[in-house]
Amino acid sequence: MRARHLLIAGRVQGVGYRDWMAREAGRLGLSGWVRNRADGQVEAVISGPEPAVEALLTLARRGPRLARVDAVEERFFEGEVELGFVRR
C-alpha cells in the first residue's frame, strides 16, 4: 500500500466535494483525510489497497454532481496515515 497526496482544482469548494470524498473513501475502505485550501483547491491524502486507491482517483477526477473538476495533481505521500478517513 502506498499513500497518495492529491490537489483537486476546479469548482470543488461549496459543492459537497469533501463530504462526497469522505463517503466514497469510507465505502472503499480507505484511510486518510480531505480538506479545503485557501486557494480554492481541495487537498487530500488517501491510503489503502491499490485497487481501492485507483478507484477513488478515478472518482476524484469526476467529483460529485455539482462539482467541476479541472485538474487532479497526484503524487506519492511518504508520511504516516492514520486509520479511517476524516474531513478536516
Rank of each mutant, 00 (worst) to 15 (best):
P51V: 10
S31K: 01
Q41L: 09
P51H: 11
G26E: 12
D19I: 04
P49H: 06
G63A: 07
L59A: 15
I8F: 01
P64M: 01
V53W: 02
D19V: 13
V53K: 09
Q41D: 08
R18T: 14
G29T: 07
F85Q: 09
V72Q: 00
G26D: 09
P51F: 07
R65S: 06
R61Q: 15
F77K: 01
L30T: 10
R62E: 15
V45T: 12
G14V: 10
S47I: 06
Q13G: 08
R4Q: 14
G79F: 06
G79C: 04
V42E: 07
L59G: 01
V15N: 02
V42N: 06
L57H: 13
L57W: 01
W20P: 11
T58K: 15
H5C: 00
V42D: 02
G29H: 03
R65V: 04
V69Q: 08
V12M: 06
G29A: 09
G29Y: 04
Q41K: 10
V81D: 11
L7H: 12
V45E: 08
A3F: 05
P49I: 05
L56G: 03
E54P: 04
G32S: 09
L83M: 11
V72M: 04
A60R: 02
I46C: 13
Q13K: 06
A38V: 12
R4A: 11
L28Q: 08
G40C: 06
